[in-house]
Design a binder for these strands. Structure first.
Lengths: 343, 343
DNA sequence: GACCCTTCTGTAATCGATTACATGTCCTCC
DNA sequence: GGAGGACATGTAATCGATTACAGAAGGGTC
């Protein structure tokens, strides 16, 4: 019953050639004459031969595998990026190995363990909480294993990085609300450890300053990026006297939580308070009220990162250090924002 | 610069033993005397040695890798299951290889290509649209590669399968609405090709019949599982004269779409129409109105499937065919359902 | 005809681990 | 003292592909 799989040598025997020739037909067909090539291909078909990846990997010292480090796979935002990644990689005949970095940042040990274990040809990192030194150690030990960041990134890291125009998005949101007459702005920021939180918060403060608006530190609330974060922020925020008339949230999920909490507390969005999100996840359109937010091209982020990594693998020259690819974003104005409330 | 990685033979030289002994220390420490074991471990530490997986895989004919076939990675419902999977697998020192089966069911060729390519030790399938014959072919060619279905499944397939109690969930929903006084029920079903659609639809009809309720085929609308599906169903449904007072949707996303569409059309949920979902995704709690739905333990589904697969890999005896593990679900009653409308 | 080039194919070493088998040592027991 | 067993370790074959190198065959030029 346990019929062993056909091997290269079986194909060679049937085709009446050497293993070297079979291998050449598979890897570089042009160097083999047409007649032998056809004979070999026929033998391949007849035997149903498939290359043993382990053997090839051992010999060529590659794995045709890319490892993705994700802080939390179950986050729908990441899954969209993975989808883009997977599509691009599988088109290039690469496999996608997935690893959830779980709670807390990963250590050098873990990263290198993963690389060595999966023998990955490259790393896609969606987790900006990794220490710079760990990354540099990894690069030192595996100089031929390029690392590309998507969405998040790490300051000072020399390597490619693909991200959305976070600051631009926030700026557009502030402007949108400003034009609607809002002057008192609040911000639900992401966790302080997160680079996107910083980026968005800074952009928020900067744009507000440019417009000569008031930046009130007590109107900047730090939460995690989840719905629950938004809900608990609402508890704090709902009782503010003369509080913000507009809240800019660092993610759609935060915005959902906030709106939900405010609504329960009897406040009307957008009539009394305007709220914006960031990401434009699918839900934003059907939420009640439909959410004004910033659209990120998540699939494209994944695509681009994959391309970027594959390019680096292809060209052995690693001269290209530190390109930052920033993808544009755009405002999707829906009904969670409106003119400032006239009592 | 390109310092080659330390190999087994390097460790052996430094520890003053043979490669066989080093290998034994790494794989079955108990057979080696304590003194040599310590010497070897020290040498391992000193060199920073890590086993070359490709070599090991080649020699042992295993890969310590599980391949997950997912219909659509970007679906947040799946990503939660993946998360459970990943956690369990990585705890057992297995890798998770991800493959998006994309549009349309996969062919034998593709499946086997993936198995052979990734040289997976096992398969987790979340896609019920694969043909039975393709699965059986795969089992014939790779008898040592167990296949476990999660969430979805394929009729007639001999093998383990982990799923939620879909019928039970629907039954509870019908009863819940029945008790609220509803007698005219509609159902937004998933795509006809999907096994869950069937299961849930049949349970819907069965329970309604048991209660001596009326099953109206024209009140059963087929959509895909997406938000967009619910929105377009709303277009059809909103103009029904004396239509259902309660809609049971085959997924939360459908319910969101439906509620959103109905609300836009001026109908009030739950005052005039009650709507239920299925899944209890995070969003259900903060949706407006909060969604009455069935909670599925998605993480647990992933966990269980992984355990199930690992168990099969561990025991070489493949006597165990066809266990179905059904996980319980429960009703989460929120505000999208209410007593039947009295005009 | 001699020489060289091009084109195609075969031989055999190699990647880095695992493991069957052989060997050696030491201990126990009759 | 010798047989037998338990335990620890080493030797070398092996997994299945890739590829450097060598060799053969054919063709063109002087």
């Amino acid at each position: 019953m346990k019929q062993t799989l056909p091997k290269l040598v079986d194909v060679a025997r049937i085709a009446g050639v050497s293993t070297a020739t079979v291998s050449r037909v598979l890897n570089d067909p042009s160097v083999v004459s047409e007649s032998t090539r056809n004979a070999v291909l026929e033998a391949v078909k007849k035997t149903g031969y498939r290359v043993n990846r382990a053997a090839r990997n051992l010999r060529t010292n590659t794995s045709k595998t890319i490892l993705a480090l994700v802080p939390n796979i179950s986050n729908p935002f990441f899954s969209n990026i993975l989808s883009g990644l997977e599509r691009e990689l599988s088109a290039a005949d690469y496999n996608l190995l997935l690893s959830d970095s779980g709670d807390g940042p990963m250590t050098t040990e873990q990263i290198q363990g993963f690389v060595a274990a999966g023998h990955a040809d490259g790393l896609i990192v969606l987790d900006g909480s990794i220490a710079l030194s760990d990354l540099e150690d990894t690069q030192a030990v595996f100089p031929n294993c390029p690392i590309v960041f998507v969405c998040e990134w790490v300051h000072g890291f020399k390597g490619h990085s693909v991200r959305s125009d976070n600051a631009g998005g926030i700026r557009v949101l502030v402007d949108h609300l400003w034009e609607l007459g809002h002057r008192r702005f609040g911000h639900l920021a992401g966790p302080s450890s997160n680079i996107l939180s910083h980026e968005r918060r800074e952009a928020f403060e900067a744009r507000l300053s440019e417009l000569k608006g008031e930046v009130r530190p007590d109107w900047i609330v730090q939460c995690d990026f989840s719905i629950a974060g938004g809900l608990s922020a609402a508890e704090v925020v709902k009782d503010l006297k003369d509080g913000p008339t507009a809240w800019i949230c660092a993610s759609d999920q935060l915005a959902f939580g906030l709106i939900s909490g405010l609504t329960r507390a009897g406040q009307r969005v957008p009539l009394e308070i305007s709220v914006t999100g960031f990401d434009n996840i699918e839900m934003a359109e059907v939420f009640n009220p439909p959410l004004t937010t910033i659209h990120q091209h998540r699939n494209k982020l994944g695509h681009k990162a994959a391309r970027c990594l594959l390019d680096q693998i292809a060209q052995t020259s690693d001269t290209s250090d530190g390109d930052v690819h920033t993808l544009p974003v755009f405002l999707v104005a829906r009904e969670s924002t409106g003119p400032v409330f006239q009592a």
